[in-house]
Design a binder for these strands. Structure first.
Lengths: 160, 160
DNA sequence: ATCCAGTGTAATTGTTGCAGTTACATTGAT
DNA sequence: ATCAATGTAACTGCAACAATTACACTGGAT
């Protein structure tokens, strides 16, 4: 475990909204999303807050139709967009205790590593940029083994 | 913070051994390494244990000259080798609580994500394979701003 | 055979960050 | 005014990491 599960949940949230709202212009509640992810609505809302700051979703406060929707098309939201919105620590940790300054390695290794680590993080992000929420939606439905027909029926039922 | 600091320390250890032993065929103790990293010898030995299992270092028990040395040339140890030896968790976490199976997304997202995550981890590892301990040694010494002359003098002094 | 400088490892502790829960103030369509 | 929703703070539980202590084990040097 390295990159926080919150990132996985963020992808789940966006994909679920994409499926649930289809093309329609409506908002869905954190409660319904939490039901699919199987966790607490508060955790979901904390993540949605970050996604909102990243301009990936829009929020509607108050009233009966309150909730969330995507700010763009699923095909226009990449895994990298989600990463930037939700993960806020560098990929690699440096030392916890600062190395011995009287040693050439101890003195020079942190700036040296920072450069190498930065290259690696960049390579990872380039890969993340290649996949979108639309891809994940497609692949998830395929993997679920559901028929599109059943899916639509069940969605209608869930809408409360 | 995502990838454990133990990985950074592992790179530090190998680079320090490379510098300290130069071309010479000798073993260095975890105590001396711990002094450069500025942490406890036990922590260092736990990491060296993993590096030993990964065939990156060799250990000499007992006697006066006991300690560690590299199992190969610094230029033949890549960042990826070290990663495989020291990091034992996947790069991305999945959900903590298992998603709702009655939802197409909940049911299909984990296998779908596993595939995408695997691609990303692979991209990161390809980048890691491009850098070696020799590169890090070179760059660390450069960054330290030390003259090679002083370095040699000081090394001789440290040797006890 | 003994010494002793080193490794190997288990047990314990302090700290940190994440996730989960409860509680309550706030928002704003209807 | 209602009330279905969000926003957020406070607290708890838990797991992983790093740091420390303690002690058994190893094996070259003498």
């Amino acid at each position: 475990m390295a990159i926080v599960s919150r990132y996985t949940v963020a992808l789940h949230i966006l994909t679920w909204i994409a499926l649930a709202t289809g093309g329609k212009d409506e908002f869905v509640s954190s409660d319904r999303i939490a039901n699919s992810v199987n966790t607490s609505p508060v955790f979901i809302r904390r993540i949605l807050g970050k996604l909102n700051k990243g301009r990936l979703v829009k929020v509607q406060h108050g009233g009966t139709g309150a909730g969330w929707k995507l700010a763009r098309q699923p095909k226009d939201i990449t895994f990298l967009d989600v990463y930037e919105a939700v993960v806020d620590t560098p990929l690699f940790e440096l030392h916890h205790s600062t190395p011995n300054d009287n040693c050439a390695i101890g003195k020079g290794i942190q700036p040296a590593l920072s450069a190498f680590y930065s290259d690696t993080e960049k390579a990872m992000k380039q890969q993340l940029a290649k996949t979108t929420i639309a891809d994940l939606l497609q692949e998830s439905v395929t993997q679920s083994g559901w028929e599109l027909q059943d899916l639509m029926t069940r969605l209608a039922g869930n809408k409360k």
